[in-house]
Design a protein around this nucleic acid. Structure first.
Lengths: 370, 370
DNA sequence: GCCTATTGGGAAAGCGCATTCCCACTGAGT
DNA sequence: ACTCAGTGGGAATGCGCTTTCCCAATAGGC
């Protein structure tokens, strides 16, 4: 038994398919009440479900909104996804998901697939790369997006504009003030502490990461501090962990007693020597910060005593981490919602959607210990 | 400029649409090489992207796989989603996402929406409720699913079979041995520790939660321990936190010195009285366990000294939590992958898909302190 | 060298729906 | 009473593609 069609409903109700269509799906012309009831009843009894594909084909619009993320299991993206999902519900649309691991090639593919499905809008949440080897991929992605937009699609990008977009028609950008916030974080940290700074960043060219690094350096400089060294690593927990290990080794080497690996448990009585102010580590996202913290701890170092750590994003799942992580709060869900809304053409029915605002949130992990 | 169509490509290549279709999309009949090349080139130069809606309409199959979760931002679900997404990529399909907050009504709606889009298969990841007030909603959901299956759809459910499914055709279940694993966790815990047990569970009727509770009790009983008290609360971090507060109050009340709320920092020297073995708290999922732990800590209690805590799921993002959380590892991503695969009709091209196996993982949070 | 397989391409019929036209009918206006 | 708008419903067309069916052309068998 195949799904029943509009025609069947119409026949059962004794009307024409045209009429049935008019009553069952919003139309300008609503048939008479009695007829409408008959049709609705027929539909009900047949368990009629309109074929969205056919509908879409007929009115060329699909009620789909495409979402591109690097990895849906990453809490940063899943938070955004939730916002998008919510906005989709408001718009009575469904979200189509694509995880791309950040590879421009598969992002291009995803855009093409969304275009093929005639998605009404596309939200791109992943940060772009701008390394030399990516320019080709980015250009292809941009071309694909341009084509999509020329055909009437709307695309919203979280973070920064698409790299090589030719048009601006159909493009929406949800600006995230990564640079400013990172600067602010740096200046607040610099205000309360003495030690040096180190930055754990993502691979060079990853825009979000670069923005945050740049901002942080600016903040330091504004506070009269020297620029921090930047450790490049992968943009995830394990990258943070690796960098954390490297840093831990340095800290221990710099200590009076020299290196004395104590593996797992709390340090065997931290050397009470008049150590210099602890190093402050800024990881460009929370997940990396957590990785770094774990690495330090695995080397017997304590936070914030032996080193302090700050992240970025304020990932919800990580809030119960101890010591509580200093970070920059970002309204991730709201960002997703806004992106999806702006791509829907009605960002609050009016002027500019209220810009995204984050908030520096200092917690235990960067406190100075007496 | 609207997107170009197959017909246009065909015209440009000087062939019929039929031929163009045959070369551009997999068909049994592949036209001659020269013609094929001409068509491909025409398609390329026009930037042709097939209209998936039309394709779907014509061959009635959409290349879509629907995924239903309670909340995509919950790490449990996002991990599963990642697995589903991966499997989808293998099958060259896209995933359609629906978050339902676990409400049967909106799950039913989601299923209908998936059916409307002619999704090839549906994966339901959320646990079912079986409270009296849910039977109606569940029945409707089941009816919707049955209809979907009768029309050729395939549905895979994570955890337990759909509550009121009439048919079995088209249904696939990825069994998760919640009960057995919880029992095993209980017995391993009981083997090494003395104290009493308390369970923090989700609302009554939530199947996953109930299974885990039941299993844990069985494990205790098998170890000759009395059944644990069960605290019902909401199935998330804040539920865990609330329950944790309640438990903390009790612990402190039971202490020699009586209640002495110390708000934030480490307990002001834990009373060195010969306290009884600490209470062991089992929260039915990791997120709740973390919430409970945070609550205890906020009351100045230390884990595992003043109470021990265990969770369930082994959420990746929570692995760096300190003290490391004892839990039951579940291959969430694999579960998602398997669900999506089994619904695709080819679960490993053969016999039963290797059953899901979890693993009790005892860590610091349940260690006995000297 | 004729007849039958076989191959390669085109014509056309849908897939299920929205929508534009068109027609029959009603009620109001003078 | 006759016309004119206005209304409510149906017939038909098309959205872009797949696929069956058909036809021409070629190759092979005796």
């Amino acid at each position: 038994m195949a799904a029943s069609t509009l025609t069947e409903v119409a026949r059962l109700a004794g009307v024409s398919p045209a009429t049935a269509s008019r009553v069952l799906n919003g139309s300008a012309r609503i048939p008479g009440k009695d007829i409408a009831d008959r049709v609705r009843q027929a539909a009900e009894s047949l368990g009629y479900i309109p074929n969205a594909q056919a509908q879409g084909l007929a009115k060329s619009s699909s009620g789909l909104i495409g979402l591109i993320v690097h990895d849906i299991a990453d809490p940063y993206f899943s938070a955004i996804a939730r916002g998008v999902q919510e906005a989709a519900r408001e718009q009575r649309k469904m979200v189509l998901l694509a995880s791309t691991e950040g590879a421009p090639a598969s992002e291009k593919e995803a855009v093409a697939a969304f275009a093929a499905r005639r998605a009404d809008s596309i939200v791109i949440a992943g940060s772009r790369m701008s390394r030399p080897e990516d320019v080709e991929g980015n250009a292809e992605l941009a071309a694909e997006l341009d084509r999509y937009c020329r055909n009437g699609g709307q695309v919203a990008v979280v973070g920064h504009a698409v790299v090589g977009a030719a048009t601006e028609e159909g493009y929406h950008v949800v600006q995230v003030p990564n640079e400013e916030l990172a600067a602010q974080l740096a200046s607040e940290l610099a205000a309360t502490r003495e030690g040096e700074f180190v930055i754990i960043g993502g691979p060079e060219g990853l825009l979000t990461s670069d923005d945050r690094i740049r901002g942080f350096q600016q903040g330091l400089s504004a506070a009269g501090r020297p620029a921090a060294e930047v450790l490049r690593t992968s943009f995830n927990r394990s990258g943070g962990f690796d960098a954390g290990l490297a840093i831990a080794a340095r800290i221990k080497a710099a200590r009076p007693g020299g290196a004395a690996p104590s593996d797992d448990r709390p340090a065997p009585a931290a050397p009470p020597a008049a150590a210099p102010a602890p190093l402050c580590i800024f990881a460009v996202n929370d997940v990396m910060a957590i990785g770094a913290a774990a690495a330090l701890r695995s080397q017997g170092l304590r936070i914030p005593r032996d080193a302090t750590v700050a992240g970025f994003d304020d990932i919800e799942t990580l809030r119960d981490f101890r010591p509580a992580l200093s970070t920059v709060h970002l309204p991730l869900e709201e960002i997703g919602r806004q992106a999806a809304r702006s791509a829907a053409g009605r960002d609050g029915d009016g002027a500019a959607p209220s810009p995204v605002t984050g908030k520096v949130t200092l917690r235990r992990s960067t406190e100075t210990v007496a």
